[in-house]
Amino acid sequence: MRTSRSGGQYNGAALYSFLLGLGHSEALVHKVLQDAGVDSIDPKRWYDINWAIEVYFAIYEKIGRGAMIAVGKKMIETAPFPPGLDDVKRLLMGLDAAYRLNVRGGADLGGITCEFDDDDSARLVWSTLGPCPLNIGIIEGCCSRVGAAALVEHGAGGCMDEGGSSCTYLVSF
């Protein structure tokens, strides 16, 4: 797990929405939060980003890759979005801005770049701090939200969960 050394913070609302995405796994959420030293997440406050990312990874460890992708997807499918974000390209391009709305105060919090190879494929490079499968779920959620049947593949060149500095996702839609 990569960490921030610059004391960044993470938006409680994002973490709260992720936990909501877990739906029926209330006991699991309760256990993980208890282990992390809290009873619940306050969507209105900001948390230490390393602590928040640890919560993500603790849940990832318990539910596995497939479920983590599903939760990320559900999070985006149900999240409120500003009007006008109604096609897959705009959604993918807007991921970096969305990420920056949920982190603050650190210089090493990473970001998301998105490049389109053509009308039907994109390449996203993520250097954020969360688990890799959650990112895949978020991308899949962006595509399915606008009805795009997309294929999201992890590109070569390393994975953040295995010590890499970034993850590249190849999206075909």
């Binding site: 190879d117 390449r123 490079v125 590109g155 070569a156 060149g157 590249t168 996702y169 190849l170």
Partner: peptide
Amino acid sequence: GRAGSVFRS
């Protein structure tokens, strides 16, 4: 030249 591709790796 394509970042993230298996060929580049």
